[in-house]
C-alpha cells in the first residue's frame, strides 16, 4: 500500500514537473493568476530561452539586416519604443501604431492593439512579415539562419539538432518573451508587505482614486482586463484606424483597442495605440475632460470622470509605483553577450 502511494506521489511530481515550467526560468508571482500560455506545448529550457533572446536582438530577422525586435522593443523602456508616436521599420518606413510594451506576456490572451494575433507563438510572424516593419518572411528568415554557423550551434544546443524551422524559431522567441516578467515594482512590494515599503500619502490617495476610476479596465495585478474598449479617443482621420473591428468585422467593435497594462508606464511613453499623448498629464486630461462620445464608447466612460488637479497628480504618483527597476535593468533580458 505504502509503495503504491509512493509511486503515485512520484508520478504526480513527475506530472507537475512536466506541466509547470522550471521555477528558476519562470515563476508565477505571488497572488497572480495562472498564466494563459500553455507551457506544456513549449517547455522552457535555458538553451531555448537563450536562442530566443539572441534572435530577439538580431537584425537578421529583417529584410535589410537593420531592424531587430529590440529596435522597437528596447529593454530599458519596458520593451517599447519611446519618443516615437508610431514605430518605424526597415528603410525608415512608419507604421500606423505605437509599439506596445512587452512584459507579462504569459498572461496575455491576444496580441497587438486589435488582438489580431491569438497566440504568442504566432506573434513574431507579424512584424517579420509586415512591409513597414521587418519586411521579410519566416521562410527567408529560416534560410538566413540556416546559413549561419552561430545559429546552427544555438539550434543544436536548444533542440538537439541543428535543423532550423519556422516552428523552432518562433517558439524560441516566445520562450524569451515569456521570461519578461515584471512583478517587482514598489506597488508589488507594498502588496507583498515587504519590510520598508509603504505608499507615500500621495501614492496611497492615488491608489484609492485609481481603484475607483481606472481599475475596472486596468485590473490588478496585471493592470489590464485583457478586453477591448473604446476609450473615447477622437478617431485620427489620417490613420483611420478602426481597431478591433478590422479583426472581428463587427460594427460593435469599431474603434475598440486592447486595454494595455499600466506596469512600467512611466517609461513606456508615448501613450495610446497611436502614441498621441506624450505624458501622463495628457492622458489624465483625456480621461477627465476630453472623451469623444460615439456608439461604441466604453460604458465605463459614459459618465464623466471628475478629477481635481491634485487627484490627477496623486494618480500619477501611484502610477509611478508601477515602475519595476529590477525588470528594466535586468541583464538577463538584455543583449546577449
Amino acid at each position: 500500500m505504502k509503495k503504491t502511494s509512493l509511486f503515485f506521489c512520484l508520478m504526480l511530481i513527475a506530472l507537475l514537473a512536466f506541466k509547470l515550467p522550471d521555477e528558476s526560468l519562470f515563476k508565477v508571482p505571488e497572488n497572480w493568476p495562472k498564466p494563459h500560455y500553455d507551457f506544456s506545448k513549449n517547455p522552457l529550457t535555458k538553451e531555448k530561452i537563450f536562442l530566443g533572446r539572441t534572435l530577439f536582438y538580431d537584425p537578421i530577422l529583417s529584410a535589410d539586416n537593420c531592424v531587430s525586435c529590440s529596435s522597437c522593443h528596447s529593454p530599458f523602456t519596458a520593451f517599447t519604443h519611446t519618443d516615437h508616436t508610431l514605430s518605424h521599420g526597415i528603410e525608415d518606413r512608419i507604421g500606423t501604431r505605437n509599439s506596445p510594451a512587452l512584459m507579462n506576456l504569459a498572461w496575455q490572451k491576444s496580441f497587438m492593439w486589435d488582438g489580431a494575433i491569438h497566440h504568442l507563438d504566432a506573434q513574431a510572424l507579424a512584424p517579420i512579415s509586415h512591409p513597414d516593419e521587418m519586411g521579410s518572411n519566416i521562410a527567408d528568415v529560416v534560410n538566413r539562419l540556416q546559413k549561419k554557423n552561430r545559429y546552427k550551434k544555438l539550434f543544436a544546443q536548444a533542440y538537439g539538432d541543428s535543423l532550423v524551422s519556422g516552428e523552432r524559431t518562433l517558439k524560441a522567441i516566445s520562450q524569451f518573451m515569456l521570461t519578461l516578467v515584471s512583478s517587482n515594482s514598489k506597488y508589488d512590494k507594498v502588496q507583498r508587505k515587504e519590510p520598508g515599503f509603504s505608499f507615500t500619502e500621495a501614492e496611497a490617495k492615488g491608489y484609492e482614486l485609481f481603484k475607483s476610476n481606472c481599475a475596472v479596465c486596468h485590473a490588478e495585478p496585471l493592470f489590464t482586463n485583457n478586453e477591448y474598449e473604446n476609450n473615447g479617443l477622437e478617431p485620427d482621420t489620417n490613420l483611420n484606424d478602426i481597431g478591433r473591428k478590422k479583426i472581428s468585422q463587427k460594427e460593435s467593435d469599431l474603434y475598440k483597442f486592447k486595454v494595455p497594462s499600466l506596469r512600467n508606464i512611466e517609461f513606456s511613453y508615448p501613450y495610446m495605440h497611436d502614441g498621441r499623448y506624450q505624458n501622463l498629464e495628457m492622458v489624465l486630461f483625456h480621461y477627465s475632460n476630453n472623451i469623444f462620445d460615439s456608439k461604441t464608447l466604453s460604458k465605463h466612460l459614459k459618465k464623466k470622470i471628475q478629477l481635481s488637479s491634485e487627484d490627477k497628480s496623486n494618480i500619477i504618483s501611484f502610477l509611478k509605483t508601477l515602475s519595476d527597476e529590477s525588470f528594466l535593468r535586468n541583464n538577463q533580458n538584455g543583449f546577449p553577450r
Binding site: 506545448k41 504568442l120 507563438d121 510572424l125 507579424a126 512579415s129 519556422g166 516552428e167 517558439k171
Partner: peptide, 23 residues
C-alpha cells in the same frame, strides 16, 4: 488553429499561415 505554431506541413514557412492576423 488556436494551438499556436506547429511544425512539419503546418510550419508557417510554407506560406500557409496569415501573418497580419493569426490563422
Amino acid at each position: 488553429n488556436v494551438s499556436g505554431i506547429m511544425g512539419g506541413d503546418l510550419d508557417p514557412i510554407h506560406g500557409m499561415y496569415w501573418t497580419w492576423q493569426s490563422g
